[in-house]
Computed example of a mutant assay.
Amino acid sequence: MFDLSRSVHNLPRTNKPLRVAVRQLHWFKAAFHAHAALCGGSIGCDFAIDDVKLAGAFVRWLDNVDRQKPKEKAERRAFFQFVPSLVLRELVVDMPIKAAHAPARVDPKSAAAFWPEGYVATTFCLTVYAATMDQEFHMDVHVSQMVDDLRSWWSFRENADQDMDYAAGFFQMLLGQQPNWWMPSNFCARTRSVDDVDNTNAPPPN
């Protein structure tokens, strides 16, 4: 089972609020490397990280956040809850991490063994999200058990290959949210009432 608490404590220290630090490439890069090393040690896998791809994902994510940031203060927490799903989307678009070999310390039928790169990217987003929500809102984050469910990861990888926006929806499901599967990476669309769009919460076919 993914150990969220251990991963949070493994993040690089910073004197700045995490909401600020995560928007700076040097901290984002250091945090991703640290998380990949922690995961690699846990599952018995070496990873190579392409820092050019990582920086590209970071820049695209910041641009997306700035374009979607709501003006209303009442939506601040909801936006904080939404933003990490955009990080995962950009990481999956051009995956910056590659496993050197199959993980040796986990069940071959586990989620981590099935897609180690996707598992590291997803748990990285969960880790930074949990640390930020605790700091900003004193809020504990509960991750769905589907984070270790192989069937969910099969669906995630298959659907993300066809539509990268699915990554955002998958992340939202991990937090117990109901994505708008028509536009899971659009904050305004996600926050609309279910009555506004027919079948908004119906997942796409596998």
Rank of each mutant, 00 (worst) to 15 (best):
L126A: 10
F187H: 13
V141Q: 08
G169I: 01
V141F: 00
K73A: 15
V197L: 15
W115V: 03
P116T: 00
E75D: 11
A78D: 14
T123M: 11
R190F: 01
V106P: 09
L150P: 00
V197S: 05
M183S: 14
N159V: 09
A30V: 00
T14R: 05
W115L: 06
A99V: 14
N186D: 15
H26G: 03
A30P: 00
T132D: 13
M1S: 09
L18V: 08
A78P: 02
A100K: 15
N64C: 07
R60K: 12
A100P: 02
D161P: 00
E72M: 11
D148L: 09
D148P: 06
G41F: 02
G118E: 10
F187R: 13
Q162C: 04
G118V: 02
G56F: 05
R13Q: 14
P116K: 01
H138Q: 10
E75S: 09
R60T: 06
F79G: 07
H33G: 03
L25F: 14
L86A: 04
A36I: 00
S110L: 13
D148W: 06
F114K: 06
A167K: 03
T14M: 12
A113P: 02
L38G: 02
V197H: 08
C45Q: 01
K73T: 13
A189S: 14
A21V: 04
R105W: 01
W115F: 08
S85T: 07
S155H: 06
N15T: 12
P116A: 04
L18A: 13
S42W: 12
I97Q: 04
V52I: 07
E117N: 11
L54S: 02
A104I: 07
A55T: 04
G40F: 00
V83T: 11
Y119H: 06
L175H: 07
F171E: 06
Q145H: 07
H142E: 13
L4M: 05
G41S: 08
D50Y: 00
M139C: 07
L91R: 02
S110M: 09
K98A: 13
R13T: 12
S155V: 12
E75R: 11
H26V: 12
L62I: 09
P205F: 13
E136P: 05
C45G: 03
D195Y: 13
F124Q: 14
G176R: 04
V65W: 01
H138W: 08
S185R: 01
D163Y: 01
F82P: 04
G44K: 06
C45P: 01
D66R: 13
A48F: 01
A160I: 06
H142S: 10
H9W: 00
R6T: 10
Y119S: 04
E72K: 03
M95L: 15
Q178Y: 12
R77N: 09
W181M: 10
Q177T: 05
A113D: 06
H101E: 14
V106C: 10
R190T: 12
R190W: 05
K98M: 08
R13C: 06
A34E: 04
D50A: 07
H33N: 05
C45A: 06
R190V: 02
T200C: 14
I49S: 04
T200K: 15
R151M: 03
A130S: 14
R77S: 08
A74S: 15
Q145F: 01
M183A: 11
D140T: 10
M183P: 01
V128C: 12
M95D: 00
S42K: 06
H138K: 11
V20T: 10
D149C: 09
